[in-house]
């Protein structure tokens, strides 16, 4: 069983549209949406939720006003500026609190307790393309990396039990905690970029992250004809880095139209975009097999 994770560094380069299409093309696979704070893959796959679970993670400090002697030690030592003193008592800002529990350990009168925190939900669904595991991190919650790890773990379990060949993961943008959590230990990363200076800059950083964690990668240039000079620069850069550019997808409004219709673009149109994405999946399977 092989696990492909689709990343980009920069947001909005087309990760989800492409994963939606790969879901429609690939056989014997499961999809995992590892973008847990702005998940969109379900909008293309039209899932029927079979199982829903709560995700409890991290804790939040709570001060018992009755017990508090207002010594201010907690406020002095909190590194996250999460404790404010209002007119006559100390108060925790649950959004700023990182759940370290330092304050609860040092409070001389044990007035601070740590409460469990419902951070989000995760789901196992059926789609007409196969099973999907996705999640929704609560608003302004932490621990997105842990929720991503949970989504991947569940996807792997289902893949093993059902003897599936592939896990196809839609990754989050950026290079930080949820990206690292989506990437580490995957078989292959597909990096979606666009021929803009921002796209190139962000590709370079996410590629370094892949190298750092020892995950091999392939690149796909989306909307390549938007700026063919930049496309050439990306190809040169990838050649130098030893990363294959396996697809160049043209800019075409059919992609947006297919999203509005809520279907993967390969099922909406058999034009140039679809042809290129089918070729992309071919290259991915060959790379994964080798």
């Amino acid at each position: 069983m092989k696990e492909l994770v689709v990343l980009s560094g920069k947001g909005g380069t087309g990760k989800t549209s492409i994963v939606g299409s790969l879901a429609a093309i690939a056989q014997n696979k499961i999809m995992a949406d590892c973008d847990v704070d702005a998940a969109d893959l379900h909008l293309l796959l039209d899932p029927t939720v079979k199982e829903e679970y709560e995700f409890w993670s991290g804790r939040v400090a709570v001060i018992d006003e009755e017990k508090c002697i207002q010594c201010g030690l907690c406020q002095d030592l909190c590194r996250f500026d999460a404790i404010s003193d209002t007119i006559d008592y100390f108060k925790i800002d649950p959004i700023a609190c990182e759940g370290c529990s330092f304050c609860s350990h040092l409070c001389p009168v044990e007035a601070i307790s740590m409460e469990d925190n419902l951070s989000g939900y995760w789901f196992v669904s059926d789609t007409r393309y196969g099973p999907l595991v996705n999640a929704r991190l609560g608003i302004a919650q932490e621990n997105s990396g842990k929720l991503v790890a949970l989504v991947r773990q569940q996807a792997r379990k289902i893949a093993e039990n059902n003897k599936l060949d592939y896990i196809i993961s839609d990754g989050p943008p950026g290079i930080g905690c949820p990206v690292i959590s989506s990437l580490s230990g995957a078989s292959l990363a597909l990096l979606i970029t666009e021929p803009t200076l921002s796209g190139i800059h962000d590709l370079e950083r996410v590629l370094q992250v892949c190298n750092h964690f020892g995950v091999p990668s392939l690149t796909c240039i989306n909307k390549y004809d938007l700026n063919e000079d930049n496309t050439k620069n990306i190809e040169d850069y990838c050649l130098k880095q030893g990363v294959a550019v396996v697809a160049k997808i043209p800019f075409d409004n059919v992609v947006t139209e297919s999203i509005v219709q809520g279907v993967p673009v390969v099922e909406y149109s058999e034009g140039r975009v679809a042809v290129e994405i089918r070729g992309l999946w071919q290259c991915i399977t060959e790379t994964l097999a080798s």
Partner: peptide, 14 residues
Amino acid sequence: SSPGTSCPVVEAIR
């Protein structure tokens, strides 16, 4: 800010 709704975004826009 960065995209999304989790801690980096909250930290940036607070």
